[in-house]
Design a protein around this nucleic acid. Structure first.
Lengths: 202, 202
DNA sequence: GAGGAAAATGAACGGTGTTCATAAATTTCT
DNA sequence: AGAAATTTATGAACACCGTTCATTTTCCTC
């Protein structure tokens, strides 16, 4: 029976993930240090490498949890309005809300890069894909003539556009908008795009 | 007369910028090493810190040059078509073309982060703002009722959306589109958005 | 409980950006 | 033009990073 071993191992993994999550939330991905994480988790520096292959793998697990939380936030909105326009706007608003409420964790999702030549694991790519799935259903109602591959492409494009708007606004690179202006700007954008889709359908 | 001093100083700066630019183009921002740059530029390691405050300042100068080249690429397209729809599509296409032709340099524009607590210098923010300016004129034709602040907000939103579509597609995070599909998807997006803007105007 | 296997430890390693006493080069003064 | 003063180039040294590994400690099997 190796119960105690496995339990300790899982406990250590959990504490490391939690510590890394807290550090990311506080100082962002750039401020993440293996020595800080292990100190917070109450273990030795080397213990991190008995639980995970390297820091990247640990970050991937933190991002997994963030994606799950983001997925829940979107799921709540997706079950609300039935009309495609209202639902897409609700999803965009929820995405913006999550991003500004969990700024550092959300930024980590897209800032993190694997070591050169190392691909993102398949299971993590699949978790990202879920974000797009929420858009397919309302888009299908809006564009009944499209087949599945085309719908997926449109959904990915729409997600990318919304992500770009949220992303650039929450960075300091361009002159920022007030949060309330950002929301109305984003919802206006979705409105315009939906109107365009309806027009083209005719 | 301090002519020789200034000339040498400018020459050193130029060689460092050129070396950094080549390294970024070859291995990206993540593969940039102070020792590699100074070796390529033919100077000692410490010389970098007599020409620039730190690596960040050097990267900022490389990004400046990239922004200037991107600006030229957009300028060429901006003087072509007169119709707003055609011009916005030409600009989006040019942006995508520049991004895929200069992938590493383009990525560096948005991946680079200053040290924590240090703001991006004003002169560099201004260089970014130029990207948006190209969109204002065609948008003004499309939306004659809007005042300047609103036009700027719409232009920034449109740029962010196009940037998001290009950005996520050129990364490996989501399932990628073939380059040719990406272009038609992007142009279709601009088409839809312009149609939406025309509809709402009525 | 004894013996063996697995895991935790933290000092040590190689590599990073940055600094700094020293040396070289350039300008200024007489 | 030559000497003194000032600025700049140098690269070894520093602090810090992720990661490794011989050693110790803990846990499982018998």
């Amino acid at each position: 029976m190796t119960a105690k071993r496995d339990a300790k191992r899982e406990d250590l993994k959990g504490r490391l993930i939690e510590a890394a999550q807290a550090r990311i939330q506080a100082s962002g991905l750039a401020g993440l240090r293996a020595r800080d994480i292990t100190a917070d988790a109450g273990c030795a520096l080397g213990a991190l490498y008995t639980a995970f292959a390297d820091l990247d793998e640990l970050i991937l697990h933190v991002n997994s949890i963030t994606l799950a939380r983001l997925g829940e936030a979107l799921q709540q909105e997706a079950t609300g309005a039935a009309e495609p326009r209202a639902r897409l706007k609700a999803l965009a608003k929820a995405y913006l809300g999550f991003a500004s409420d969990n700024r550092m964790a959300w930024k980590a999702l897209f800032e993190h890069r694997m070591a050169p030549g190392v691909a993102v694991p398949e299971w993590h790519l699949a978790e990202h894909a879920v974000l797009i799935q929420h858009l397919v259903e309302p888009l299908a109602k809006l564009l009944p003539a499209l087949d599945t591959p085309d719908l997926l492409a449109r959904a990915r494009t729409l997600f990318s556009a919304v992500h770009g708007i949220v992303s650039i606004s929450l960075e300091d690179r361009f002159i920022g908008l007030a949060p309330t202006d950002l929301e109305s700007e984003l919802l206006g954008f979705v409105d315009t795009l939906v109107s365009g889709l309806e027009t083209e359908r005719e």
